[in-house]
Computed example of a mutant assay.
Amino acid sequence: MSERTAPRTAPLRARAEIDLAALRANVRALRAHAPGAALMAVVKSEAYGHGAVPCARAAVAAGADWLGTATPEEALALRAAGLPGRIMCWLWTPGGPWREAIEADVDVSVSGMWALREVTAAARRADRPARVQLKADTGLGRGGCQPGEDWAELVREALRAEADGLLRVTGLWSHFACADEPGHPSIAAQLGSFREMVAYAEEQGVRPEVRHIANSPATLTLPESHFDLVRTGIATYGISPSPELGTPADFGLRPVMTLSASLALVKHVPGGHGVSYGHRYVTPGETTLGLVPLGYADGIPRHASSAGPVLVEGKWRTIAGRVAMDQFVVDLGGDEPPPGAEAVLFGPGDRGEPTAEDWAQAAGTIAYEIVTRIGTRVPRVYVNDEEDG
């Protein structure tokens, strides 16, 4: 096992351990779920809180063909770190760094005419063609071009710019709204719309390198949606995109992040003792309390007050009272672990610890949010960063 983190002179208050061997294994498992398609590992939002550059490198080492980001700044940071190969970004606003992306050989997504005008102008300034992927809104109602006249105009003008040597249409793509809800009628409707919009573009002369719509849940459960490329986000990090679809183990995946902290204080208190702001928890009898030095400033959801699970010395504890900005309390029930003892908030579950999904249930949210929101005050510690053998 190898480990990398910033130099330190004292034990860590808390740490998010990132198991890169698990990430590599997840990429290989996901490729097996879509053997006929290339795979894009999505590393947006600092790889869902895991750290974009180390995770991108691990994903590429395991066979990811593409890397995906939301913002151009994320894509450019990957290039600056030396990541090779295909990188795509899709969340653009007017005045974005189009020229920089073109010069960095990043595939950019275009959903409307304003973006096509800006990318072609940037291509003229850069004196090289842009790699452009046209996004279709097949029913998500978010980014993407509407079918019908809007799509026809976008395709026509993109082909005109391609003929002028200003861009290359490298992809046609879309995104599901409800792929994590098996049997939802929108899934078939979106697939049908995507096929029609792709067929129209290809009839007009578009020759894309890749056509893609499948996200993590579709990669795992909808082989008919795989086309040329699948985009795996949360599944790359070993988290099931929906409990309804199955657990990570059901899909051959392993959670990559383990979040833990060192107890800052253990103390005896009498019964009837109020705990944390608002005294929403009052000790039912004489007990011991443990102070965990993580709070909502670190990404611990305040909605998990009086509900979030923590493993301390082999036992599940529950947050006692409200989560504060920097800390929360667990009732240890009279047990007396020493200060500095490990409190594990979530991990793969191997040691009986809670998982990110357990925290999602406690906070009334999704596991995506649990891992992504862990803040920068929590150091990422990378283990198993070298390939086995």
Rank of each mutant, 00 (worst) to 15 (best):
residue 41 A to E: 01
residue 328 F to M: 08
residue 167 L to R: 13
residue 291 L to N: 11
residue 215 N to P: 13
residue 351 R to C: 11
residue 330 V to K: 00
residue 299 G to S: 13
residue 134 L to P: 02
residue 188 A to L: 12
residue 98 W to T: 09
residue 223 P to F: 02
residue 79 R to K: 08
residue 132 V to H: 05
residue 343 A to R: 00
residue 383 V to Q: 04
residue 109 S to I: 11
residue 383 V to M: 04
residue 200 Y to T: 15
residue 32 A to W: 06
residue 269 V to C: 03
residue 88 M to V: 14
residue 356 A to W: 03
residue 123 A to W: 08
residue 225 S to L: 04
residue 67 L to F: 07
residue 223 P to A: 01
residue 376 T to V: 14
residue 221 T to Q: 03
residue 239 I to A: 03
residue 257 M to H: 05
residue 236 T to I: 10
residue 104 A to S: 12
residue 268 H to D: 14
residue 335 D to H: 12
residue 365 T to F: 11
residue 358 D to N: 06
residue 263 L to P: 00
residue 313 E to A: 14
residue 292 V to W: 00
residue 311 L to K: 01
residue 56 A to P: 02
residue 83 L to H: 08
residue 379 P to V: 07
residue 41 A to R: 01
residue 361 Q to M: 12
residue 56 A to K: 00
residue 302 R to Q: 13
residue 302 R to K: 12
residue 297 A to I: 11
residue 39 L to A: 06
residue 287 T to F: 07
residue 231 R to T: 01
residue 216 S to F: 03
residue 388 D to R: 15
residue 280 R to D: 11
residue 137 D to Q: 12
residue 8 R to V: 10
residue 310 V to P: 04
residue 104 A to I: 07
residue 334 G to E: 11
residue 141 G to P: 15
residue 293 P to A: 05
residue 386 E to A: 14
residue 139 G to Y: 02
residue 81 A to Q: 07
residue 145 C to Y: 14
residue 218 A to T: 01
residue 308 G to E: 04
residue 1 M to F: 09
residue 326 D to Q: 12
residue 22 A to K: 10
residue 195 R to E: 15
residue 44 K to A: 05
residue 43 V to G: 11
residue 248 P to W: 02
residue 257 M to Y: 05
residue 19 D to A: 08
residue 290 G to L: 08
residue 114 W to V: 10
residue 368 Y to M: 11
residue 313 E to F: 04
residue 368 Y to C: 09
residue 200 Y to F: 15
residue 235 A to P: 07
residue 229 L to W: 06
residue 247 T to P: 04
residue 114 W to Q: 09
residue 56 A to F: 00
residue 91 L to Q: 15
residue 63 G to M: 10
residue 265 L to P: 06
residue 71 T to P: 06
residue 207 R to H: 14
residue 262 S to W: 06
residue 233 G to T: 01
residue 10 A to E: 15
residue 33 H to S: 10
residue 233 G to P: 00
residue 297 A to G: 14
residue 57 R to N: 01
residue 37 A to C: 02
residue 100 E to R: 14
residue 311 L to D: 00
residue 46 E to H: 09
residue 48 Y to A: 08
residue 47 A to Y: 01
residue 248 P to K: 05
residue 152 A to H: 06
residue 374 I to S: 06
residue 106 V to N: 08
residue 125 R to W: 06
residue 327 Q to M: 10
residue 300 I to D: 13
residue 91 L to Y: 12
residue 303 H to D: 15
residue 195 R to T: 15
residue 211 R to K: 15
residue 367 A to R: 02
residue 165 G to Q: 11
residue 56 A to T: 00
residue 42 V to G: 09
residue 99 R to K: 13
residue 36 G to H: 03
